[in-house]
Structure formats: C-alpha cells, structure tokens
Design a protein around this nucleic acid. Structure first.
Lengths: 138, 138
DNA sequence: GCGATATTCAACCACATGGTTGAGCAAACG
DNA sequence: CGTTTGCTCAACCATGTGGTTGAATATCGC
C-alpha cells in the first residue's frame, strides 16, 4: 500500500501547477513575466496563435495560481505569484531526498554550463550500485 | 532578447515530464518508486483503477523519461530515472532567481545581474523588444 | 503438457485540452 | 459622440487523456 501523499498540504493545486508548466507556451509566458509585469496583450503578442487562444493560456496560468491578475481600466496586468511555484519546488525538494545520489550527478549536469571543459574532474561517483540505494536515507 | 535557456537541453522532454507530474496517480507511483524498484503490478496495486489503466500511467511515466523499465521474465521492473527530473529541477533553478526578485528585495537580484555590466537603475517593468519570434520549438 | 501469473494491446467511451472564429463589452481616444 | 483598443465569452472542432473491458502474449510453476 502506498502511503498517503506528500502533497496533502497543497491539495490539488500541484496538479494545476504542473499541468500549467507542461505547456511550452505557458512556460514562455512565465519567462516573460519573470522580466516584469505584463498585460495579457503583451503576453500574447509573441505567439503566432490567436489572441483568444493565448488568453486561454493566461487563464490556465491564473487558475493554477502561478500568476495573479489585476484589472486596471481595460487592461489586465499579470504578475507572478511565487507561492504556487514554491509548492512545486517543495515537491522537488521532497523527492530530492530520495534521489539524492543521482541529484549530485545532476548538479554536475547543471554545472556543465560553467565547467564544460577545462577540468576533467570527473568525480567518478562510484556509479551507484542500484541495490542499496536510498534505503538508508529515509 | 528571449533566450531559450533552460529547455534547449532536452527539447520537448520538459513537456512530458511536467505532464507526467501533473497527475496525482503518477506522482504517487513516483513516490512508491522512491522506496525502491517496483514491478508494474506493484505500482498498480494500491489504486482502485483497473490494472491496464494503471499500466498506462506507468507507460506515461516511462515516455516522459522519469522512469526506466527492464523486462525480466514476465515481470517488468521499473526504476527511477533522475536525469529527466534533473531537467525539470534545472527549470526551477533557472526561474528561482526571478521569483526571488518578486518575493523580496528585487534590487539584490538586479544588482547581481546588472551591476556587473554597469547598467544602473533598471525598471523591470520595461517591456523588452520581444517582437521577434519566440514561438515554436522551445 | 496445463494452468496461473504478469503484462501489453486494441477498441471503445466520456471528457478535457488547445486551438479557431465571431461576437460582445467596457474603457480610452479624438 | 463614435471608433478603436484590450479583453472576455461562447460556440465549435480536432485531438488527447484517463478510464474501462476483453482479448492476446509470454513466462513461471507444476
């Protein structure tokens, strides 16, 4: 039997957050919002799709809680809402515990950007014997 | 300019990864896998849905790259494949700095980013010239 | 061999999703 | 005032998704 979920604290918002993130258009919109608040029109502009189509994506982001919108006159200004992302990030952190061994391998991947060449430090992390992994760590 | 930064490594895998994570059943399966390798039957057992239904979820996880399966006899053993998760985690890392900016003192982040380049006061609100395409293929 | 086990596969269903178009509506502009 | 702007809404369509059932396919135990 599978234990009760680690996501019980943020009930089903995680579903919406991850779903929102699963679309490249919406990720790019978030990326744009990372540079500052944007109107729906500004968010929609870069995409080839219709305005209403892009506005749907904005609404999806809003429903997920990732962004918030304030109406000012006829323009709707969107801004990031970091709380929702924090939940998803917490999810990753939770699982990072279990995947710790592989996670420092992934750290290496992330650093590859900086240390792409230069040092062949190659930590040779013993390429884990998949037998005893993550059982001692809770 | 909108750089395609974090997604370029595994082109559309991010879509699949976030999509896989957007379902609570699949997240619970991942949680089970965090405790060790599992057969498809073991993964499916805790859920009230049909076996074939659960097996579909397993397949979705596999397609996303989050898990890998090795066939041994008639049983299929699934194990976590953290590399895919690494990309999603990298995505979070990338956006974390923008998020912090809206969370607390944005000047700190701006200083770290721009002071090195010598660009003084900066209004993040300014709309960048993103008229150029960022649609398609990210 | 036989039968039980572990799994995939195919067909099907209800419904959500991503996209379109066209209309409608409130606010800003001249 | 009327017209344009910014945006939502509703209808529609194609495809995808989560779920079912009923096979079919290997494999293990006897």
């Amino acid at each position: 039997m599978v234990e009760q979920t680690p996501q019980r604290k943020s009930p089903d918002r995680l579903d919406a957050v991850f779903h929102a993130l699963s679309d490249p258009t919406r990720r790019l919109m978030l990326r744009s919002l990372a540079g500052g608040d944007r109107t729906v029109g500004e968010l929609a502009a870069p995409f080839r799709m219709s305005f209403a189509g892009a506005a749907k994506h904005v609404k999806t982001l809003e429903r997920s809680g990732l962004i918030r919108r304030t109406v000012r006159g006829r323009t709707h200004i969107c801004r990031l809402e970091p709380a929702a992302l924090a939940n998803a990030n917490a999810w990753f952190r939770y699982y990072a515990r279990f995947w710790e061994q592989s996670l420092d391998a992934l750290e290496a991947v992330l650093r590859e950007e900086d240390a792409a060449r230069g040092k062949p430090s190659r930590k040779a992390r013993k390429l884990p014997q998949q037998k005893d992994r993550l059982n001692e760590h809770h």
